[in-house]
Amino acid sequence: MDLIQLKTLSDLKNLKSSQPRQMIYFLAGGTDLMVQYKEDLLQKDALLVDISSLKELNFIKEENNRIRIGSLTTFTDILKNKVIKRHCEALTSCAGQIGSLQIQNRATIGGNIANASPAGDSIPTLYVYRSMVKTNFGIYPVEKIFKGVKKTQLKKNECILEIIIPKSIEKHRSFFFKSGPREALAISKASLALKLSVEKSIIKEINIAAGAVGITVISCYKTGQYLTKKKINKEIIENAKRLISQEISPIDDFRSTALFRSNFVEESLSKALQSVLKKKS
C-alpha cells in the first residue's frame, strides 16, 4: 500500500491528476480505517492519503444562520464545544457515547461519514439537523452521501472538508438514543435521533432518523409527517411507534436481532415524545 501525507489543503488539488487508476482512502483519525487496514480489508494496491495533519480542517465556527464543523474535528472537540451544545444537543450527546475516550480523542466527524457504516453514531443526528456535507467537489445533503453499507457516492478524489448544520430559527429540542451491548465502547445495535419543536404539546416540526436498522441510516419521513401538527398523547405515540417500525428495515445479525432493534427504535421515539410533553406541562 502506498501512502502520501498532505501538508496543506491545496495538495488535494494535485492529487487529481497524479494517480489515475488507484483506489484512494483518506486517512483521518484512523479509528475505523486502520482496523480495516490491519484486517486486510482495504484494496491491496490502494493509495492511503493521510490528511490528519491538515489543521485547516479542524474547526467549529458559528455563523449567522449555520454552524460549520471541519471534517477533521474530533468527537472530543465536539463534545466540549459550547456552540454545538447550545444548538445541537443531540450531537453533543452522541459525541460522548462514541467508542471510548481514546476513540473520541482521535475519531473525526468527517471520518464517521466517509466510513458510511449504518451504525455510524453521528450520522442520524446529522440527518435530523438536515446537515450538508461539503467536499472538494461540491455540497450535498448528508443523506445523499450514502449508497449502502460502507459505500458512499463520493468520487475517488473526493474528500469531505466540512459539515454545515443550518441553525434552527424555531426553539427546538433534539435527542440521540443508542443501544449498545454496554454503556461505553460499543458499536450501536440501533440508534435514533430526533429534532423537534413543540408548542403547547403540538408538534410544529419533527425530523427523525434511525441508525443500524437498514443498509444506510434511514430518515423516517412518514412518521415525521404523521406527527407534524399533532397534539402528543398516548394514542398518537402508539400510532407513531407502529409507523416507524414499518419505515425501518432491521435485520438479525451478530450484534442484535431485528425484533430488538425495532423495539428499541419504537421505545426511544416514545421516550423522546413523552419527555417533551413532561417539560411543557
Binding site: Q5, G30, T31, M34, V35, Q102
Partner: peptide, 27 residues
Amino acid sequence: RGDCGACTILINGKSVRSCLVLAVEAD
C-alpha cells in the same frame, strides 16, 4: 484492533490507541 486499550499512549496530551496510528503520523 483498538478495542482493549493496552496500547494507550498520550499524543499531544490526549490518550490514543497506538495500535491504530501509523508511525508516520507521529511526525
